[in-house]
Each structure stands twice: as C-alpha cells, then as structure tokens.
Amino acid sequence: MVKQLGFIIDLNKCIGCKGCEMACHNENCLDDIHYRKIVTLAEHPKNFFGFLSMACNHCRNPACIKVCPKGCFKKRKDGIVLHTNSNCSGCESCIGACPFRVPQINPQTGKVEKCNFCFKRIDQGLKPACVEACIPEALYITDLSKPLSEKYHEILPGFTIIRITRPSIRFILPQPPVCFWRHDK
C-alpha cells in the first residue's frame, strides 16, 4: 500500500450540524440511504453535544473485501475501498462483516452501496464533498501511512471503535468549556 487515506474528526470543532451528511446526499444524489451519518456520542448527563460524523472508514484490512462472494470490493493504492455494484447480489454478507455496518442496501436497486471517498473528486485533486462542506473545518482527510501527530487518537473514550479491521479514522478529542452553572440563591 502506497497510501492510506483516512478521515480526521476534530471533536473540538464538530458542531454536529449535519452539513457533511447532507453534502454527501447532495453530491451523490442519494434518496433512501446515508453514506455518512452523524452519531450522537454517549449521553452524558451534562451532554456536551459530542457528535461523531462517520462514513465508510476505508479500513486497512477491510472485512467487506474478504466476505463478498462476488468480489465487488476492491482497495485502491491510496487506500480507498470501493464497491462496484454491477455484480452485487444483495446478499448482505458485507453488511454483517463490517464492524460499522457501513454498506447499506439501496431499496431502489436491491444492491449494496457505500461511501466511495468521492474518489472521482480525489482523482481530480479535490476533497471529498463532506470535507469540502465542513464549515468549522472539523472534518478533513490525511494520509495515515505517514507519521501522525499524537493529537490524533485511534479511540474515543466512551465510544466503542472496533479496531480489528484497522479503520482509517482518527479523532482529536474534545475539550469541554469551563462551565458555571446557575447558582440560585
């Protein structure tokens, strides 16, 4: 592997606005499925609105490739995992194998679809639509095969990220504000 493109999410900056999710819908003209979703992180009594924007994690060891009986998945040299659905039978093995349940059946076609990292945009030197849409620049991409700053974390406290397939996603952990709650006399 020459490269491994992946997503970085700065949870300090993410405001859960769902702009990335909708930009993905808009770019890919999606009807019934979501390539990218915003998950609300574990409910804390003083919920600091932790959000996690997640699409396909373009794993280093993708389980989907291994289980697909039709060989629909392939991994590019830049690490992007692509699904070509002409042979897809909709058997859903990939959905079961993916720790993040990323592939989804498109009810209109009966075939699987998932985030393709906007590979056509990447090939034109552009950013994925979700990244380009992120207003606070909380979501961006990087080459994870290069040495990474220690501020990029592989795990999120209080949220399970299954590491077995080596997902290409990293986090900058949130720093909540200093809060003074009301103090009525």
Partner: peptide
C-alpha cells in the same frame, strides 16, 4: 466560503 448548511444542501 463555498459551503452550505444541512438545510441548503437539501
């Protein structure tokens, strides 16, 4: 800055 919000993208 070339960006829309979730509503705009819909």
């Amino acid at each position: 800055r070339g960006r829309l919000c979730a509503k705009g993208f819909s």
